[in-house]
Amino acid sequence: MTMGEWAVGRVAKRAGVKVSTLHFYESKGLIFSYRNAGNQRRYSPEVLRRISVIKAAQKLGVTLEEIREAFSSLPDNRTPTQHDWEQLSKQWNHQLQQRIHYLERLRDSLTGCIGCGCLSMKNCPLYNEDDKLAAEGSGPVLLNRKRESE
């Protein structure tokens, strides 16, 4: 094995993922391997950067499909450079801010009514026959409302 060839086990250990995770990422087009003369999977060392970007993006709540789309937008589907990561992270920053605001609303509403329409809480503002918030949509209407400051 040359310095530019990494076996699947070495990549998995170094990246902190299971071998099955590497196979899954590969099946989704997120990482790539090639076969050596013995038909064994081999990876270039730069695959570690791709895996790191995948794991970081997932922690932000970015889906694998969104990550795949971002990777495929790079020239020749290359491994993201530092500049690429800066651009990708800017794209995902807006999504992260939206999630943060949603989680803040959830935290602030957790012990009270969230506007789901269940009519089961005595202090629920929907506890009436008219169910006025139904006109605003289904599900947790109050939780999904945007704050005045947003």
Rank of each mutant, 00 (worst) to 15 (best):
M3F: 10
G4D: 05
G4T: 04
G4V: 07
E5T: 05
W6L: 15
A7Q: 08
V8D: 02
V8H: 02
G9Y: 03
R10L: 01
K13R: 14
R14I: 01
A15H: 05
A15W: 02
G16R: 04
K18M: 14
L22V: 13
L22E: 02
L22K: 03
E26T: 12
E26W: 06
K28S: 06
L30S: 03
S33V: 12
S33F: 09
S33I: 10
A37G: 03
A37Q: 08
G38N: 15
R42I: 13
R42W: 13
S44V: 15
V47D: 07
V47E: 03
R50K: 15
I54R: 08
K55E: 07
A56Y: 13
A57V: 02
A57Y: 06
A57R: 07
L60A: 12
L60V: 01
V62P: 12
T63L: 13
L64V: 03
L64E: 02
E65L: 14
E65A: 15
R68N: 01
E69L: 14
E69C: 08
E69R: 14
A70P: 08
F71C: 04
S72C: 10
L74I: 01
P75Q: 09
P75S: 00
D76I: 06
D76S: 12
P80A: 06
H83Y: 02
W85R: 10
E86D: 11
L88N: 09
S89K: 13
S89L: 12
W92H: 04
W92R: 01
H94D: 04
L96I: 05
Q97H: 05
Q98A: 10
Q98G: 02
R99A: 09
Y102W: 09
L103Q: 09
L103H: 02
E104I: 01
E104P: 00
R105M: 09
R105D: 01
D108L: 03
S109K: 08
L110Y: 09
L110W: 10
L110V: 10
L110M: 07
T111P: 02
T111F: 08
G112T: 08
C113D: 02
C116A: 11
G117M: 11
C118M: 08
L119S: 06
K122H: 11
K122Y: 11
N123H: 09
C124H: 06
P125E: 00
L126P: 02
L126N: 12
Y127I: 07
N128G: 14
N128S: 15
N128Y: 03
D131P: 00
D131Q: 13
A134S: 14
A134E: 08
A135I: 15
E136I: 00
V141H: 05
V141F: 09
L143R: 01
L143Q: 07
N144V: 04
K146E: 14
E148C: 10
E148Q: 15
E148P: 07
